[in-house]
């Protein structure tokens, strides 16, 4: 069962990554060139998924949009992990009121979901891929801090760390030798789950026009455009949504599969 989850996750994520990679060197058509003579063509041998209101090939746009989706995910998760994990490990290592205060401050970020932060940044600086990535990244910091802290506290309470400390090993050495290897796997699981959430957030933001501006294709903006043609060409609303769902499902399954692999005890609860 758990192998199935992991393999399905790897397979779906690979599809998305492959689409993005291939789109760097080849797409069926130019993903941004407007062609008024080819507007709203249904699926055909020439255009597998048809064309949109500007006459652009849908399949090409979906492939190129995978780049943006993955880029936002990588940068956002990177920001969150690079800031959140040291905060979590530090607070777990030091303990006491200091760690309580640090965690409470990161808790306040919970009141700022990615979308709200992105709206603030877009209002202040104008919407761009960067405001979206940074907003999603900052909003995801608390999740990483929490996971890293929980892992650290657990390791610090274990007998083997107690033994190491009783032998005079310093905190920094303990952090390097015992905590990092133990926290890394849970952070990996968290990264996979956070990646899925980041893709959803990016899709919502670009749907609202608060992320990557045109002409760069994004799945969210494609859905916004498709809504205009819902009465005449409803299939336009199908493919970008499916692409988002596949990508998110892939990362979610990957995260679940990794978690099962790491801790069989959690299997029951996590499914």
């Amino acid at each position: 069962m758990r192998r199935v989850t992991l393999l399905a996750g790897v397979a779906l994520v690979s599809v998305v990554v492959l689409l993005a990679l291939v789109s760097f060197v080849w797409t069926p058509y130019d993903p941004v060139r407007v062609d008024p003579s080819a507007r709203l063509l249904g699926p055909s041998a020439a255009h597998w998924l048809g064309t949109d209101g500007f006459g652009i090939d849908i399949a090409s746009r979906i492939m190129v949009a995978a780049q943006t989706c993955l880029l936002v995910g990588v940068i956002a998760v990177g920001i969150a992990a690079l800031v959140g994990v040291p905060i979590g490990i530090g607070s777990g290592l030091l303990g006491g009121w200091f760690s309580e205060v640090v965690m409470r401050v990161t808790d306040v970020l919970y009141a700022f979901p990615a979308l709200l932060l992105a709206i603030l940044l877009a209002a202040a600086f104008g919407a761009s891929t960067w405001t979206a990535m940074i907003a999603i990244g900052i909003a995801t910091i608390p999740a990483f801090a929490r996971v890293a802290r929980a892992g650290t506290v657990q390791v610090m309470a274990s007998d083997y760390v107690l033994a190491a400390r009783s032998c005079g090993t310093g905190r920094a050495a303990i952090a390097g030798r015992h905590i990092l290897p133990n926290v890394a796997p849970v952070v990996g699981v968290q990264a996979s789950v956070a990646f899925g959430i980041a893709i959803l957030a990016e899709a919502a933001l670009s749907y609202l026009g608060l992320a990557t501006p045109p002409p760069t294709p994004t799945w969210g903006r494609m859905l916004r455009d498709a809504q205009t043609y819902l009465f005449t060409e409803p299939s336009l609303a199908l493919w970008p949504g499916l692409a988002i769902a596949v990508a998110v499902l892939g990362f979610n399954l990957l995260g679940d599969g990794l978690r099962d692999l790491l801790d069989p005890k959690l299997r029951e609860q996590a499914r």
């Binding site: 899925g196 959803l200 899709a203 919502a204 749907y207 969210g220 859905l223 498709a226 809504q227 819902l230 409803p234 609303a237 949504g241 988002i244 769902a245 596949v246 998110v248 499902l249 979610n252 399954l253 679940d256």
Partner: peptide, 18 residues
């Protein structure tokens, strides 16, 4: 529920409208 988790709410909205 795993699939429902992966569907963006706004896409569900667009499909529901359709």
């Amino acid at each position: 529920s795993q699939i429902g988790l992966a569907v963006p709410a706004f896409w569900a909205g667009i499909l529901a409208v359709f």
